[in-house]
Write a protein that binds this DNA or RNA. Structure first.
Lengths: 206, 206
DNA sequence: CAAAGGTTGTGTAAATTATCACATCCTGAA
DNA sequence: TTCAGGATGTGATAATTTACACAACCTTTG
Protein backbone atom coordinates (compact mmCIF):
# COMPACT_ATOMS: atom_id res chain seq x y z
CA UNK A 1 0.00 0.00 0.00
CA UNK A 2 2.73 2.50 0.94
CA UNK A 3 4.82 1.04 -1.86
CA UNK A 4 5.27 4.18 -3.89
CA UNK A 5 5.63 7.68 -2.54
CA UNK A 6 2.56 9.85 -2.44
CA UNK A 7 2.77 12.95 -4.64
CA UNK A 8 3.51 16.25 -2.95
CA UNK A 9 0.42 17.81 -4.43
CA UNK A 10 -1.64 15.39 -2.34
CA UNK A 11 0.36 16.22 0.80
CA UNK A 12 -0.39 19.86 0.14
CA UNK A 13 -4.12 19.25 0.42
CA UNK A 14 -4.02 17.25 3.64
CA UNK A 15 -3.48 20.26 5.93
CA UNK A 16 -6.52 21.90 4.40
CA UNK A 17 -8.63 18.83 5.13
CA UNK A 18 -7.32 18.83 8.67
CA UNK A 19 -8.08 22.51 9.12
CA UNK A 20 -11.68 22.11 8.01
CA UNK A 21 -12.17 18.96 10.08
CA UNK A 22 -10.84 20.66 13.21
CA UNK A 23 -13.35 23.44 12.66
CA UNK A 24 -16.13 20.87 12.40
CA UNK A 25 -14.93 19.21 15.55
CA UNK A 26 -15.00 22.52 17.42
CA UNK A 27 -18.58 22.94 16.31
CA UNK A 28 -19.51 19.54 17.68
CA UNK A 29 -19.86 17.84 14.31
CA UNK A 30 -18.81 14.19 14.68
CA UNK A 31 -19.54 12.72 11.25
CA UNK A 32 -19.01 14.09 7.76
CA UNK A 33 -18.82 12.94 4.17
CA UNK A 34 -16.42 13.63 1.34
CA UNK A 35 -19.22 15.61 -0.25
CA UNK A 36 -19.73 17.89 2.75
CA UNK A 37 -16.02 18.38 3.32
CA UNK A 38 -15.47 19.06 -0.35
CA UNK A 39 -18.11 21.75 -0.45
CA UNK A 40 -16.57 23.47 2.56
CA UNK A 41 -13.12 23.78 1.02
CA UNK A 42 -13.92 23.81 -2.67
CA UNK A 43 -12.44 20.43 -3.61
CA UNK A 44 -14.30 17.62 -5.36
CA UNK A 45 -15.56 14.74 -3.24
CA UNK A 46 -13.81 12.19 -5.43
CA UNK A 47 -10.52 13.98 -4.98
CA UNK A 48 -10.81 13.90 -1.23
CA UNK A 49 -11.72 10.22 -1.18
CA UNK A 50 -8.81 9.35 -3.43
CA UNK A 51 -6.35 11.40 -1.38
CA UNK A 52 -7.43 9.82 1.89
CA UNK A 53 -7.50 6.32 0.43
CA UNK A 54 -3.77 6.62 -0.14
CA UNK A 55 -3.30 6.16 3.58
CA UNK A 56 -5.93 3.55 4.37
CA UNK A 57 -9.66 3.12 4.57
CA UNK A 58 -10.85 5.70 7.03
CA UNK A 59 -14.51 5.93 6.10
CA UNK A 60 -17.61 3.84 6.43
CA UNK A 61 -19.69 3.18 3.35
CA UNK A 62 -23.14 4.64 3.58
CA UNK A 63 -22.15 6.66 6.63
CA UNK A 64 -19.11 8.81 5.90
CA UNK A 65 -16.11 9.65 8.06
CA UNK A 66 -15.84 10.00 11.82
CA UNK A 67 -14.52 13.52 12.29
CA UNK A 68 -12.47 12.88 15.46
CA UNK A 69 -11.00 9.73 13.97
CA UNK A 70 -10.07 11.41 10.70
CA UNK A 71 -8.57 14.37 12.54
CA UNK A 72 -6.46 11.96 14.55
CA UNK A 73 -5.34 10.06 11.48
CA UNK A 74 -4.43 13.20 9.57
CA UNK A 75 -2.47 14.49 12.55
CA UNK A 76 -0.54 11.24 12.56
CA UNK A 77 0.08 11.34 8.81
CA UNK A 78 1.24 14.96 8.91
CA UNK A 79 3.23 14.22 12.08
CA UNK A 80 1.52 16.97 14.02
CA UNK A 81 0.50 14.57 16.80
CA UNK A 82 3.42 16.01 18.76
CA UNK A 83 5.01 19.35 19.68
CA UNK A 84 7.50 20.87 17.25
CA UNK A 85 9.95 23.44 18.57
CA UNK A 86 10.87 26.14 16.11
CA UNK A 87 13.44 28.89 15.78
CA UNK A 88 12.42 32.34 14.63
CA UNK A 89 15.09 34.38 12.87
CA UNK A 90 14.38 38.08 12.68
CA UNK A 91 12.61 40.05 15.41
CA UNK A 92 11.23 42.92 13.35
CA UNK A 93 7.56 43.83 13.06
CA UNK A 94 6.67 40.60 11.30
CA UNK A 95 8.84 38.45 13.53
CA UNK A 96 7.19 39.90 16.61
CA UNK A 97 3.71 39.34 15.21
CA UNK A 98 4.63 35.73 14.55
CA UNK A 99 6.07 35.28 18.02
CA UNK A 100 2.80 36.45 19.52
CA UNK A 101 0.57 34.36 17.24
CA UNK A 102 -1.51 32.01 19.33
CA UNK A 103 -2.28 29.69 16.41
CA UNK A 104 1.10 28.01 16.48
CA UNK A 105 0.86 26.59 19.96
CA UNK A 106 -2.76 25.58 19.33
CA UNK A 107 -1.50 23.37 16.52
CA UNK A 108 1.58 21.89 18.11
CA UNK A 109 4.17 24.41 16.96
CA UNK A 110 6.16 26.27 19.60
CA UNK A 111 8.45 29.22 19.03
CA UNK A 112 11.33 28.15 21.24
CA UNK A 113 14.14 30.46 20.14
CA UNK A 114 14.31 33.93 18.64
CA UNK A 115 17.38 35.42 16.99
CA UNK A 116 18.27 38.82 15.60
CA UNK A 117 21.49 40.48 14.50
CA UNK A 118 20.53 43.92 15.82
CA UNK A 119 22.19 44.53 19.23
CA UNK A 120 19.24 46.74 20.16
CA UNK A 121 16.85 43.84 19.79
CA UNK A 122 19.03 41.28 21.55
CA UNK A 123 17.97 40.96 25.16
CA UNK A 124 14.39 42.03 24.48
CA UNK A 125 11.81 39.53 25.63
CA UNK A 126 9.01 38.72 23.17
CA UNK A 127 6.14 36.62 24.44
CA UNK A 128 8.38 35.33 27.26
CA UNK A 129 11.19 34.41 24.87
CA UNK A 130 14.46 36.37 25.03
CA UNK A 131 15.96 37.50 21.73
CA UNK A 132 19.45 36.05 21.22
CA UNK A 133 22.17 37.30 18.92
CA UNK A 134 22.59 35.44 15.63
CA UNK A 135 26.19 34.69 16.53
CA UNK A 136 24.80 32.10 18.94
CA UNK A 137 22.35 30.71 16.42
CA UNK A 138 24.10 27.62 15.06
CA UNK A 139 25.21 26.37 18.44
CA UNK A 140 21.89 27.01 20.21
CA UNK A 141 19.79 25.41 17.49
CA UNK A 142 22.06 22.38 17.51
CA UNK A 143 21.84 21.86 21.25
CA UNK A 144 18.05 22.25 21.16
CA UNK A 145 17.89 19.84 18.22
CA UNK A 146 15.51 22.18 16.42
CA UNK A 147 14.45 21.10 12.94
CA UNK A 148 12.12 23.92 11.88
CA UNK A 149 12.95 27.60 11.37
CA UNK A 150 10.93 30.64 10.35
CA UNK A 151 12.79 33.32 8.47
CA UNK A 152 11.74 36.98 8.73
CA UNK A 153 15.02 38.63 7.83
CA UNK A 154 15.79 41.04 4.97
CA UNK A 155 16.19 39.37 1.58
CA UNK A 156 19.85 40.37 1.36
CA UNK A 157 20.84 38.13 4.26
CA UNK A 158 18.26 35.36 3.84
CA UNK A 159 20.52 32.98 1.93
CA UNK A 160 23.47 33.32 4.30
CA UNK A 161 21.20 32.83 7.32
CA UNK A 162 19.74 29.80 5.55
CA UNK A 163 23.20 28.33 5.07
CA UNK A 164 23.80 28.67 8.80
CA UNK A 165 20.44 27.07 9.61
CA UNK A 166 21.30 24.09 7.43
CA UNK A 167 24.65 23.82 9.15
CA UNK A 168 22.76 23.76 12.44
CA UNK A 169 20.67 20.82 11.30
CA UNK A 170 17.43 22.58 10.37
CA UNK A 171 15.39 20.54 7.89
CA UNK A 172 12.36 22.75 7.27
CA UNK A 173 12.26 26.48 6.64
CA UNK A 174 9.24 28.73 6.45
CA UNK A 175 10.63 31.65 4.49
CA UNK A 176 8.99 35.08 4.70
CA UNK A 177 11.86 36.78 2.88
CA UNK A 178 11.06 37.68 -0.75
CA UNK A 179 13.73 35.51 -2.33
CA UNK A 180 14.12 31.94 -3.53
CA UNK A 181 16.43 29.97 -1.25
CA UNK A 182 18.94 27.40 -2.43
CA UNK A 183 19.00 24.36 -0.15
CA UNK A 184 20.05 20.68 -0.27
CA UNK A 185 17.49 18.06 -1.29
CA UNK A 186 16.78 16.96 2.28
CA UNK A 187 15.79 20.46 3.41
CA UNK A 188 12.25 21.65 2.77
CA UNK A 189 11.26 25.24 2.14
CA UNK A 190 7.88 26.87 2.03
CA UNK A 191 7.45 30.44 0.89
CA UNK A 192 5.15 33.10 2.29
CA UNK A 193 5.28 36.29 0.28
CA UNK A 194 2.24 38.56 0.08
CA UNK A 195 3.55 40.31 -3.03
CA UNK A 196 3.67 37.04 -4.96
CA UNK A 197 0.12 36.21 -3.91
CA UNK A 198 -1.17 39.67 -4.75
CA UNK A 199 0.43 39.64 -8.19
CA UNK A 200 -1.20 36.33 -8.87
CA UNK A 201 -4.57 38.00 -8.35
CA UNK A 202 -4.02 41.34 -10.07
CA UNK A 203 -3.50 39.36 -13.27
CA UNK A 204 -7.21 38.65 -13.25
CA UNK A 205 -8.35 42.19 -12.35
CA UNK A 206 -9.07 44.87 -14.97
CA UNK B 1 -2.37 33.88 -29.90
CA UNK B 2 -4.42 34.86 -26.83
CA UNK B 3 -7.15 32.56 -28.12
CA UNK B 4 -7.42 30.24 -25.17
CA UNK B 5 -6.96 31.21 -21.55
CA UNK B 6 -3.62 30.56 -19.97
CA UNK B 7 -3.70 28.06 -17.09
CA UNK B 8 -3.59 29.44 -13.57
CA UNK B 9 -0.59 27.31 -12.74
CA UNK B 10 1.38 29.32 -15.28
CA UNK B 11 0.15 32.61 -13.83
CA UNK B 12 1.32 31.39 -10.45
CA UNK B 13 4.90 31.16 -11.69
CA UNK B 14 5.06 34.58 -13.35
CA UNK B 15 5.43 36.54 -10.08
CA UNK B 16 8.38 34.35 -9.17
CA UNK B 17 10.05 35.10 -12.48
CA UNK B 18 9.43 38.78 -11.92
CA UNK B 19 10.84 38.65 -8.40
CA UNK B 20 14.07 37.02 -9.55
CA UNK B 21 14.40 39.36 -12.52
CA UNK B 22 13.95 42.42 -10.33
CA UNK B 23 16.74 41.15 -8.10
CA UNK B 24 18.97 40.76 -11.14
CA UNK B 25 18.12 44.26 -12.26
CA UNK B 26 19.05 45.65 -8.85
CA UNK B 27 22.39 43.94 -9.18
CA UNK B 28 22.99 45.53 -12.55
CA UNK B 29 22.46 42.39 -14.60
CA UNK B 30 20.93 43.38 -17.94
CA UNK B 31 20.77 40.07 -19.83
CA UNK B 32 19.84 36.58 -18.74
CA UNK B 33 18.83 33.22 -20.17
CA UNK B 34 16.08 30.78 -19.33
CA UNK B 35 18.83 28.50 -18.03
CA UNK B 36 20.24 31.06 -15.61
CA UNK B 37 16.82 32.19 -14.41
CA UNK B 38 15.74 28.60 -13.97
CA UNK B 39 18.72 27.74 -11.84
CA UNK B 40 18.04 30.72 -9.60
CA UNK B 41 14.47 29.74 -8.82
CA UNK B 42 14.57 26.00 -9.28
CA UNK B 43 12.43 25.73 -12.41
CA UNK B 44 13.47 24.08 -15.67
CA UNK B 45 14.61 26.30 -18.49
CA UNK B 46 12.09 24.74 -20.89
CA UNK B 47 9.25 25.49 -18.49
CA UNK B 48 10.22 29.15 -18.29
CA UNK B 49 10.53 29.48 -22.05
CA UNK B 50 7.16 27.86 -22.58
CA UNK B 51 5.49 30.01 -19.96
CA UNK B 52 6.87 33.22 -21.40
CA UNK B 53 6.10 32.22 -24.98
CA UNK B 54 2.42 32.22 -24.06
CA UNK B 55 2.57 36.00 -24.10
CA UNK B 56 4.85 36.66 -27.03
CA UNK B 57 8.45 36.32 -28.12
CA UNK B 58 10.47 38.24 -25.57
CA UNK B 59 13.88 36.69 -26.07
CA UNK B 60 16.64 36.74 -28.64
CA UNK B 61 17.97 33.48 -29.93
CA UNK B 62 21.58 32.95 -29.09
CA UNK B 63 21.50 35.86 -26.64
CA UNK B 64 18.76 35.36 -24.07
CA UNK B 65 16.37 37.89 -22.53
CA UNK B 66 16.84 41.56 -21.78
CA UNK B 67 16.20 41.81 -18.05
CA UNK B 68 14.70 45.33 -18.02
CA UNK B 69 12.49 44.49 -20.98
CA UNK B 70 11.26 41.24 -19.48
CA UNK B 71 10.61 42.92 -16.14
CA UNK B 72 8.55 45.52 -17.94
CA UNK B 73 6.61 42.92 -19.90
CA UNK B 74 5.87 40.81 -16.82
CA UNK B 75 4.72 43.88 -14.94
CA UNK B 76 2.32 44.60 -17.77
CA UNK B 77 1.07 41.03 -17.91
CA UNK B 78 0.54 40.86 -14.15
CA UNK B 79 -0.95 44.37 -14.22
CA UNK B 80 1.50 45.66 -11.67
CA UNK B 81 2.60 48.50 -13.94
CA UNK B 82 0.35 50.72 -11.80
CA UNK B 83 -0.50 51.46 -8.17
CA UNK B 84 -3.11 49.28 -6.48
CA UNK B 85 -4.84 50.65 -3.41
CA UNK B 86 -5.76 48.04 -0.83
CA UNK B 87 -7.86 47.81 2.31
CA UNK B 88 -6.51 46.09 5.40
CA UNK B 89 -9.10 44.56 7.69
CA UNK B 90 -7.85 43.79 11.18
CA UNK B 91 -5.33 45.94 13.04
CA UNK B 92 -3.90 43.35 15.42
CA UNK B 93 -0.24 42.38 15.63
CA UNK B 94 -0.21 40.91 12.15
CA UNK B 95 -2.27 43.72 10.62
CA UNK B 96 0.12 46.29 12.05
CA UNK B 97 3.16 44.42 10.76
CA UNK B 98 1.56 44.37 7.32
CA UNK B 99 0.71 48.06 7.46
CA UNK B 100 4.35 48.87 8.15
CA UNK B 101 5.77 46.54 5.50
CA UNK B 102 7.80 48.54 3.01
CA UNK B 103 7.64 45.82 0.36
CA UNK B 104 4.10 46.66 -0.69
CA UNK B 105 4.73 50.20 -1.83
CA UNK B 106 7.98 49.13 -3.50
CA UNK B 107 5.90 46.83 -5.69
CA UNK B 108 2.96 49.06 -6.45
CA UNK B 109 0.64 48.05 -3.64
CA UNK B 110 -0.54 50.72 -1.20
CA UNK B 111 -2.39 50.15 2.03
CA UNK B 112 -4.97 52.92 1.69
CA UNK B 113 -7.52 52.01 4.36
CA UNK B 114 -7.39 50.14 7.67
CA UNK B 115 -10.44 48.83 9.52
CA UNK B 116 -10.99 47.17 12.89
CA UNK B 117 -14.05 46.42 14.98
CA UNK B 118 -12.32 47.14 18.30
CA UNK B 119 -13.25 50.67 19.49
CA UNK B 120 -9.87 50.85 21.23
CA UNK B 121 -8.07 50.46 17.93
CA UNK B 122 -10.31 52.84 15.98
CA UNK B 123 -8.67 56.24 15.79
CA UNK B 124 -5.16 54.89 16.15
CA UNK B 125 -2.83 55.91 13.34
CA UNK B 126 -0.68 53.17 11.81
CA UNK B 127 2.01 54.21 9.36
CA UNK B 128 0.11 57.47 8.79
CA UNK B 129 -3.18 55.69 8.15
CA UNK B 130 -6.04 56.13 10.66
CA UNK B 131 -7.89 53.00 11.73
CA UNK B 132 -11.58 53.22 10.88
CA UNK B 133 -14.44 51.25 12.37
CA UNK B 134 -15.73 48.32 10.35
CA UNK B 135 -19.19 49.85 10.32
CA UNK B 136 -17.82 52.30 7.76
CA UNK B 137 -16.12 49.63 5.72
CA UNK B 138 -18.55 48.97 2.89
CA UNK B 139 -19.22 52.61 2.17
CA UNK B 140 -15.60 53.72 2.39
CA UNK B 141 -14.28 50.94 0.18
CA UNK B 142 -16.97 51.69 -2.37
CA UNK B 143 -16.18 55.38 -2.58
CA UNK B 144 -12.45 54.63 -2.88
CA UNK B 145 -13.20 52.00 -5.54
CA UNK B 146 -10.83 49.58 -3.84
CA UNK B 147 -10.60 46.14 -5.44
CA UNK B 148 -8.07 44.39 -3.16
CA UNK B 149 -8.36 43.57 0.54
CA UNK B 150 -6.12 41.87 3.05
CA UNK B 151 -7.82 40.01 5.86
CA UNK B 152 -6.17 39.64 9.26
CA UNK B 153 -9.26 39.10 11.39
CA UNK B 154 -10.12 36.10 13.61
CA UNK B 155 -11.39 33.05 11.71
CA UNK B 156 -14.84 33.30 13.34
CA UNK B 157 -15.62 36.59 11.59
CA UNK B 158 -13.62 36.09 8.40
CA UNK B 159 -16.55 34.87 6.29
CA UNK B 160 -18.93 37.62 7.37
CA UNK B 161 -16.28 40.27 6.76
CA UNK B 162 -15.66 38.68 3.37
CA UNK B 163 -19.34 38.95 2.51
CA UNK B 164 -19.20 42.66 3.29
CA UNK B 165 -16.06 43.11 1.20
CA UNK B 166 -17.76 41.48 -1.75
CA UNK B 167 -20.74 43.74 -1.29
CA UNK B 168 -18.34 46.67 -1.37
CA UNK B 169 -16.98 45.56 -4.72
CA UNK B 170 -13.71 43.91 -3.67
CA UNK B 171 -12.51 41.40 -6.26
CA UNK B 172 -9.31 40.05 -4.69
CA UNK B 173 -8.73 38.96 -1.10
CA UNK B 174 -5.48 38.01 0.54
CA UNK B 175 -6.70 35.96 3.47
CA UNK B 176 -4.53 35.49 6.54
CA UNK B 177 -7.37 33.94 8.55
CA UNK B 178 -7.09 30.15 8.94
CA UNK B 179 -10.32 29.30 7.15
CA UNK B 180 -11.49 28.63 3.61
CA UNK B 181 -13.62 31.49 2.32
CA UNK B 182 -16.68 31.04 0.14
CA UNK B 183 -16.83 33.64 -2.62
CA UNK B 184 -18.46 34.16 -6.03
CA UNK B 185 -16.57 33.07 -9.14
CA UNK B 186 -15.44 36.56 -10.03
CA UNK B 187 -13.71 37.09 -6.68
CA UNK B 188 -10.18 35.76 -6.21
CA UNK B 189 -8.76 34.55 -2.92
CA UNK B 190 -5.23 33.69 -1.94
CA UNK B 191 -4.45 32.08 1.38
CA UNK B 192 -1.53 32.75 3.69
CA UNK B 193 -1.52 30.41 6.65
CA UNK B 194 1.76 29.46 8.29
CA UNK B 195 0.21 26.41 9.97
CA UNK B 196 -0.76 24.93 6.60
CA UNK B 197 2.73 25.50 5.25
CA UNK B 198 4.38 24.04 8.33
CA UNK B 199 2.22 20.93 8.27
CA UNK B 200 3.14 20.42 4.66
CA UNK B 201 6.76 20.18 5.75
CA UNK B 202 6.47 18.17 8.96
CA UNK B 203 5.08 15.36 6.82
CA UNK B 204 8.57 14.88 5.46
CA UNK B 205 10.40 15.14 8.80
CA UNK B 206 11.09 12.13 11.04
C1' DC C 1 32.23 35.03 -45.43
C1' DA C 2 31.85 30.64 -42.96
C1' DA C 3 31.57 28.01 -39.08
C1' DA C 4 30.99 27.28 -34.11
C1' DG C 5 28.58 28.02 -30.00
C1' DG C 6 24.66 29.19 -27.65
C1' DT C 7 19.69 30.22 -26.88
C1' DT C 8 14.94 30.71 -28.17
C1' DG C 9 10.30 29.03 -29.41
C1' DT C 10 7.53 25.04 -30.15
C1' DG C 11 5.49 20.48 -31.82
C1' DT C 12 5.29 16.16 -29.74
C1' DA C 13 5.73 12.68 -26.34
C1' DA C 14 5.68 11.46 -21.54
C1' DA C 15 4.22 11.95 -16.99
C1' DT C 16 1.29 13.54 -13.74
C1' DT C 17 -3.13 14.81 -11.93
C1' DA C 18 -8.11 14.93 -11.84
C1' DT C 19 -12.57 13.08 -13.08
C1' DC C 20 -15.86 9.49 -13.85
C1' DA C 21 -18.49 5.67 -12.87
C1' DC C 22 -19.69 1.88 -10.41
C1' DA C 23 -19.24 -2.34 -7.53
C1' DT C 24 -19.34 -2.77 -2.75
C1' DC C 25 -20.82 -2.06 1.60
C1' DC C 26 -23.46 -0.07 5.63
C1' DT C 27 -27.71 1.63 7.78
C1' DG C 28 -32.33 1.98 8.75
C1' DA C 29 -37.06 1.24 7.83
C1' DA C 30 -40.96 -1.52 6.50
C1' DT D 1 -35.65 -10.21 6.26
C1' DT D 2 -35.57 -7.38 2.38
C1' DC D 3 -35.08 -3.31 0.01
C1' DA D 4 -34.02 1.59 -0.67
C1' DG D 5 -30.83 5.21 0.08
C1' DG D 6 -26.44 6.86 0.53
C1' DA D 7 -21.44 6.90 0.86
C1' DT D 8 -16.90 4.76 0.26
C1' DG D 9 -12.84 3.02 -2.36
C1' DT D 10 -10.93 2.33 -6.84
C1' DG D 11 -10.02 0.92 -11.72
C1' DA D 12 -10.45 3.19 -15.97
C1' DT D 13 -10.49 7.32 -18.49
C1' DA D 14 -9.83 12.08 -19.49
C1' DA D 15 -7.46 16.33 -18.87
C1' DT D 16 -3.69 18.85 -17.62
C1' DT D 17 1.03 19.70 -17.00
C1' DT D 18 5.85 18.89 -17.77
C1' DA D 19 9.81 17.28 -20.28
C1' DC D 20 12.12 16.45 -24.53
C1' DA D 21 14.27 17.51 -28.75
C1' DC D 22 15.37 20.19 -32.42
C1' DA D 23 14.86 23.66 -36.24
C1' DA D 24 15.63 28.38 -36.49
C1' DC D 25 18.18 32.11 -35.46
C1' DC D 26 21.72 35.39 -33.48
C1' DT D 27 26.45 36.58 -32.31
C1' DT D 28 31.18 36.22 -32.40
C1' DT D 29 35.45 34.74 -34.11
C1' DG D 30 38.78 33.62 -37.44
Amino acid sequence: MNEKTIPDIVIGRLPRYLQALEHMLQQGCTVTSSKELGEKIGISAAQIRKDLSQYGEFGKQGKGYSVPFLVHKLQQILKVDRIWDMALIGAGNLGKAIAYYQGFIDHGFRVALIFDSDPQKVGQVINEIPVLHTSMMIETIQTHQIKIAMLTVPAQVAQSVTNQLIQAGVKAILNYAPITLTVPDDVHVQYIDPIIHLQRMTYYLD
